[in-house]
């Protein structure tokens, strides 16, 4: 047992270290399970190489496994042995079924939520002065044109939102307008859903192409009203 026990303890210790200790080291982060698996695989290969360096250690390492598989002197572990011998083929069969069975799931469409804007819409600054009057006017336009979907509370939960997939953006969420520049919003409002590049899945977006209906000045005011109403500020270059 000694030759097998140590590797098992080492593997368990390694797993516990990667899973629970490492993420708590300052400046570190939880590891993805694929990386943990890779590290454990490296640990296991290291153990196998170490244990098979000499003839003696090789026998001590493989011996218990061989005795377990052949059932010689395994005594009370016989039940465990049959369990392994039955479960292994079943696991192989299950994996084979899983990888060959046709999926019932519809094709997944990876959709980029904030795709890159066309060059002419980067770095534009809001030409409308940020006065209380303009902000108020922007909020008025927002209430008239945007709030049916994006919501009176700027939370994407307007009365017309429920049927749309993708859902209207929630401006109160710090991952939407708070991480975008004003010129990005100008592009999205002006060109709407149909203006998105292919990675943004434009065929699914219900966002109107507002340039057809609203003058640019109104759009800039709406942007101002949106940031103010959602208690966010536009991203700027530091």
């Amino acid at each position: 047992m000694g030759a097998l026990g140590k590797p098992i303890i080492l593997m368990v210790a390694m797993y516990l270290f990667l899973k629970f200790v490492l993420p708590n080291i300052p400046g570190s982060a939880p590891l993805p399970s694929s990386l943990i698996f890779l590290y454990l695989l490296l640990t296991a290969s290291g153990i196998v190489i170490y244990e098979t360096l000499s003839g003696e250690s090789k026998d001590a390492f493989w011996g218990p496994m061989q005795r377990f598989l052949t059932g010689e002197g395994s005594g009370g572990l016989q039940v465990l042995r049959y369990g392994v011998l039955i479960l292994f083929p079943l696991l192989v069969g299950w994996e084979t079924y899983g990888s060959t069975a046709s999926s019932d799931l519809p094709p997944t469409e990876g959709r980029t939520i904030h795709p890159a804007p066309p060059g002419e819409y980067t770095g534009l600054s809001n030409p409308v002065p940020k006065t209380p009057d303009n902000i108020m006017q922007g909020k008025g336009f927002y209430a008239a044109f945007c709030s049916p979907c994006h919501g009176g509370n700027f939370d994407g939960k307007g009365p017309a939102a429920r049927g749309f997939n993708p859902p209207p953006a929630n401006f109160a969420d710090p991952t939407t307008i708070a991480m975008l520049q004003e010129s990005y919003l100008f592009w999205r409002i002006k060109k709407g859903g149909v203006g998105l590049p292919i990675e943004g899945a434009p065929w699914k977006s219900a966002m109107p192409r507002w340039e057809v209906e609203l003058p640019d000045e109104w759009i800039w005011k709406i942007i101002m009203g949106e940031y103010d109403g959602a208690h966010q500020s536009p991203r700027t270059w530091e």
């Binding site: 083929p89 192989v92 069969g93 084979t96 060959t100 046709s102």
Partner: peptide
């Protein structure tokens, strides 16, 4: 509504059961 998906089911395909059985036998 937005776009959703429609699919007409294909006739039942039992080949993956066969592949699984072959895999079990090989193991």
């Amino acid at each position: 509504s937005s776009w959703w998906y429609f699919r007409a089911d294909a006739p039942p395909d039992y080949s993956s059961y066969m592949y699984a059985a072959v895999a079990v036998a090989l193991a």
